[in-house]
Write a protein that binds this DNA or RNA. Structure first.
Lengths: 154, 154
DNA sequence: TATTGTTATACTCTATAACTATA
DNA sequence: TATAGTTATAGAGTATAACAATA
């Protein structure tokens, strides 16, 4: 990524902001993820969609988007790419012709087997940084932040 | 954002992954931030850059990028935008003519006063979700994830 | 030779608005 | 009328590679 060695700067409290800390942590994990999944060419978001399609075959595109907190238009971009790569298919629903049911192709299923294995390894790598108690606490704290999601929408 | 009501899906462990949880939490805070700063038209990243420029006037562009974990090319995009909006200026360094020192314009300084106030309010809003002990724990846990950053680079 | 910034290029995610086809 | 998906469009962040100027 070609970065300069860390300098010596004033932060005036920037690095004490919870939002900033969270962003930097997420950024570090994101880079770590990309490095670990580089050869599979699947981003975190794409993996999330494929993951849910695998364990909810035939579920509507919009339902996946809602579950992952994504806009309809955003889902379109992601599903378009996954479909173009031949990892999943859209099928017009017979129950409600407005909906598109998503199903993984054989190739998508093969890829997701690798992704599962890789994910377990990556997760283990992350969790090694913490004790069991810390992990439970961490998840609880992260969960609290997600409650903001509901506040904004209404 | 036009989202569909939450569906009832299988997750097969996706929602137990630390990386997933972190991403969703960051996403929620990011949306909350954007909603709170909508009228000021400054993103989290742009705010980070302006913040450091304000408390380190004349610091080199690359030093800011390194402090915020950003690539040189990424910094270019962000600084270009801030400069085009008249919020900061690039000045060729007299100590090392390769470097560009960043300084906030009067307009940038005015805007950042508002941003500071707004940030304190936003931070308060976030921190209300937690006790003092929880906050200290949270920051410690997030810090541990940032150690991944060093592991990947070398 | 190495570093700082630059440009060109490409990819991903996000979102709004207007449109269609269905319900 | 309302909903699911689509298209067009735009903004933002990320990164690689090649290049110029400077050290």
């Amino acid at each position: 990524m070609a970065r300069t060695p860390a300098p010596d700067l004033q932060y005036s409290g920037l690095d004490e902001l919870l939002g900033y800390r969270l962003r930097r942590a997420q950024s570090a994990v994101h880079r770590d993820y990309n490095a670990a999944f580089d050869d599979l060419k699947l981003t975190q978001k794409q993996t999330g969609v494929m993951w849910l399609v695998l364990c909810n075959p035939g579920v509507a595109q919009g339902a996946i988007g809602a579950a992952l907190g994504m806009d309809r238009a955003t889902m379109m971009v992601i599903v378009d790419r996954l479909e173009a790569r031949g990892l999943l298919q859209r099928v017009r629903s017979r129950k409600d012709a407005r909906q598109r049911e998503l199903v993984a192709t054989p190739e998508g299923q093969r890829l997701m087997k690798k992704v599962h294995t890789r994910t377990i390894a990556h997760e283990k790598r992350l969790k090694q940084l913490f004790t069991g108690t810390e992990l439970r606490t961490f998840e609880r704290l992260l969960q609290k932040l997600q409650s903001l999601e509901d506040t904004v929408e209404e």
